[in-house]
Design a protein around this nucleic acid. Structure first.
Lengths: 102, 102
DNA sequence: ATCTATGTATAAGC
DNA sequence: GCTTATACATAGAT
């Protein structure tokens, strides 16, 4: 990134690794929030550090709620019953377009 | 970002929003993979588009495995310690779903 | 934690 | 999808 590229492999120096973990974790969560806001998406992120500490982000509601929703979506895999998620005030043209845009 | 800053609010133009969603979703998942490799972290990400389509990433093993680990960690020191105990329905749902996702 | 030179991500435009 | 000009993220130093 700055002042030197980085190799895409585990950073061996533990101090460097820890510093990079803090910086990039923060950057990742920021990007997730931005994507959620800009594109009206619902995002869940969880990160376990190498030592097992948990960091998480749920852009709407709770992580529990997102996990439940994830379970429903991933179960059917292909044809998600998207009608369930449809907002009542969403215009018909959007619903029609949806399957072609995602 | 490039050729113009972006306001941190929902992109109203649906074409722009869709394009940005694709690009940033891809960027977010890439960043997650990098953080995982560089810092030896285990990361789970799931993204629901505005129309309910699911995109996911689990840097090690399966999302199921990460969710199980998340449950254990979040029970103790993280945000919603009592969530699992107060939502028996979800635990059943998890067990049920697991059979179909192996 | 703060700074800053540089590498990346990406908004617009093809 | 590809290109290009910019905004942003961040490695290394402090």
């Amino acid at each position: 990134m700055a002042r030197g590229k980085v190799q895409m492999k585990r950073i061996e120096n533990s101090v460097h690794r820890q510093v990079t973990f803090c910086k990039r974790r923060s950057g990742l969560l920021k990007k997730a929030k931005e994507l959620s806001v800009l594109c009206d998406a619902e995002i869940g992120v969880f990160i376990f550090s190498a030592h097992g500490k948990l960091y998480e982000l749920a852009t709407k509601g709770t992580m529990q709620g997102l996990i439940e929703r994830y379970m429903k979506c991933s179960r059917g895999a292909q044809p998600e019953p998207a009608a369930i998620e449809t907002q009542p005030d969403m215009v018909i043209s959007l619903n029609y377009t949806a399957k072609y845009l995602d």
